[in-house]
């Protein structure tokens, strides 16, 4: 068991190395080079040369690669060209906002999505199932910013129930009001996804022999569904939701931009607009590492809770 966990963790190392290599290659895809891309075509040769030296672009590619790897692996993700802060400092500044949003969305998604999926599976091919499936298909089709904008129009502009722009505030009530729309937006997309996964996972489990046995033994329907079926259906749900993490990040970036919330989304947008490629590169590495860690953790949790997974191979 512990051997499996260690093996799975070791397996993440080549993945991280390959990811770093890919980011390195990506950044060197820039036509011309990063220095020209950052300063623009009209920069003088001397300025370009200085920046190249600063970025290490004047070194041979192999030297650049080794230096890049050692920097990244020692936790030095680079420094923002505009603010002068390190990438980790930049991320740490805005991470609480994004985590708060993601957690609220996850809460909404779980509380709505799992019941919706269970009902759909239990009432399969009847109207609750159709309603739930149509709703989740619509939810999955929304790009995060489109649903955000429509909600902004409906609740903030037309109904005027909630503020249009999020502002930092120490008052807990207004803080929650600021969080409500972005969290609801991201949460409803999560709901659509979780409902869908729950439905198919529940349908798989409900077809198993032990459910039939339990039913034959006279277990009450509620207990049968909640204890016997949902309990086991949760395992694949957790895995799939873990794998969804990357998409969640993408959608939260868009949501933050729509609701002008501080967070990783705004950080990325800023880096993009100021052509801060070192920050962008650092952010890519941080994000991808995050996703790799979450995927690894998901695999391990899956193995821990599902006795059928063999640790041998």
């Amino acid at each position: 068991m512990i051997g499996y966990v260690i093996r799975r963790l070791l397996l993440a190392i080549p993945t991280v190395l390959a990811m770093l290599t890919m980011v390195f290659v990506l950044v060197r895809l820039v036509p011309g080079d990063a220095a020209v891309a950052m300063l623009g075509d009209r920069a003088s040769a001397a300025t370009l040369q200085t920046l190249r030296a600063q970025l290490g672009l004047d070194q041979p590619i192999a030297v650049q690669y080794v230096r890049f790897l050692t920097d990244m692996l020692s936790g030095d993700f680079g420094r923002s060209m505009t603010s002068g802060r390190t990438v980790l400092e930049e991320v740490a500044l805005v991470l609480p906002y994004t985590l708060e949003l993601a957690a609220a969305a996850m809460l909404i998604g779980t509380c709505l999505g799992i019941p919706l999926g269970v009902v759909a599976a239990v009432r399969r091919n009847r109207w609750p199932d159709y309603v739930s499936r149509v709703l989740s298909l619509i939810g999955l089709s929304f790009p995060g910013f489109v649903s955000g904008i429509l909600m902004l129009l409906a609740f903030a502009v037309w109904l005027q129930w909630l503020p249009v722009m999020s502002r930092a505030s120490t008052d807990p009530i207004s803080h929650l009001r600021n969080l409500a729309l972005p969290a609801l937006n991201l949460g409803l997309i999560m709901t659509a996804y979780i409902a869908r996964v729950t439905r198919s996972s529940m349908l798989d489990v409900m077809g198993e022999d032990y459910i039939r046995t339990a039913r034959a033994k006279g277990v009450r329907p509620t207990k049968l569904i909640l204890r016997h079926a949902l309990g086991n259906a949760l395992i694949p749900i957790v895995t799939v939701v873990g794998l969804y993490f990357g998409t969640l990040i993408g959608n939260s970036v868009l949501t933050e931009i729509v609701f002008t919330r501080p967070g990783l989304g705004k950080l990325i947008l800023g880096a993009l607009q100021s052509r801060d490629y070192t920050l962008l590169q650092g952010l890519m590495v941080v994000f991808a590492t995050f996703v790799i860690l979450v995927n690894t953790a998901t695999d391990i949790i899956y193995a821990l809770v599902d006795p059928r997974v063999s640790y041998a191979s």
């Binding site: 993408g250 970036v253 990325i268 994000f287 991808a288 995927n295």
Partner: peptide, 17 residues
């Protein structure tokens, strides 16, 4: 490894580059 990059961020990075 490709799958470990969030789709939108990877697209954003490549398009920006």
């Amino acid at each position: 490894v490709m799958l470990s990059f969030p789709t939108l961020l990877l697209g954003l990075m490549i398009a920006a580059m």
